[in-house]
Design a binder for these strands. Structure first.
Lengths: 178, 178
DNA sequence: ACATCGAAGTTGAAGCATCAAGCTTTTTTC
DNA sequence: GAAAAAAGCTTGATGCTTCAACTTCGATGT
């Protein structure tokens, strides 16, 4: 964390608002979580199953939908992924027989991705372990109060990351209420 | 987030401890941050400079060291990266003239990576913008109290991710106190 | 001294994400 | 109603990360 108090932003000409000591402490710790937690979740999933954490999320989102089906765009949006990335991932999942693609009958542009029975099987097998890991790595470390604080903080930051974007997205809220 | 209350872990035989509604809300929001914040930081850095957020971190860590130098192992550890990844990254940074490698005179195994003057230059140019982004995306969204909470929560989770690992690592703490 | 083992680092291949380009279909606009 | 624009999606190339294999050097043990 470079901090030279004398310098000035060479682009804007403003004196940078450096982090306070408390912020620096928070940022370093938080950065560590940002790097290590996704890695831990992915490593855990790969170790217990034959697929990545991201692939698990894709299967999981599909399983929550009526008819286990979603268009590629919606699937990408719900997983915070680009359409391109989702297309590649679904291609891989399709090769493994866990997802199938079919053109939509209503709109000739859209492709609908559907979780197959085989896909549902591997998901059911993977889910308990994943929930266990999330509990152990995150929630077991926190008091109920801190869990609330985490939700609040995360929502606040998401508001900054997605200005104008309602969060959580409508589709997810529907799922959460079920 | 798959949640079938009737099923049992097929590996352990236990009934999974599913997330509560509050935990689910926290987890979905937090997951969003976990995905979007690193992407935003990287996109911001690439947009303003010619390098990635991770490369920035590497340069930044080096700049804080005496003689702007660190062994590859230490550099990797301080950036939560594998030695292999760091080797590739330093190779790229070296090609751009921002870092130089030299063998240690004390220990024939270690390679010492050093931030060059040119590297320091680009770092100084990139730092204010980065700090500004961190402020805007994270700290401006939070009250001072929430910033404290974030630090506490992050440290707790790191304790789970790094069982037995003292956090923040000694080297970083030294830098922070300076 | 010699062998063994672990630490430090590099390298090449494989896998995954991103980006730009392109295709098809639908909607908009004039 | 034809042209243009936009939406939805796919593909191939590029670049980065990971993984496994390998090299070299230092420590340990006998």
């Amino acid at each position: 964390m470079l901090q030279l108090r004398c310098i000035v932003d060479r682009v804007t000409g403003e004196a940078p608002r450096w982090l306070t000591a408390a912020q620096k402490k928070a940022w370093i710790a938080f950065s560590g979580v940002l790097i290590k937690l996704p890695y831990a979740l992915d490593a855990d999933m790969r170790g217990r199953t034959g697929f990545s954490h991201f692939e698990y999320l894709v299967l999981s989102v599909l399983s929550d939908q009526p008819d286990r089906t979603l268009s590629m765009s919606q699937l990408a949006a719900l997983n915070n992924a680009s359409l391109s990335r989702m297309s590649h991932v679904v291609t891989r999942l399709e090769k493994r027989g866990w997802v199938s693609r079919c053109p939509s009958s209503e709109n000739g542009r859209v492709t609908r991705a559907r979780l197959t029975d085989a896909g549902y099987e591997v998901l059911v097998e993977a889910a308990p372990g994943h929930v266990k890991t999330v509990q152990e790595l995150v929630f077991d470390a926190l008091t109920p109060e801190e869990q609330e604080q985490l939700a609040t903080i995360a929502l606040r930051v998401l508001g900054r990351l997605d200005p104008g974007g309602d969060w959580p997205p409508h589709e997810i809220r529907v799922v959460m209420d079920s």
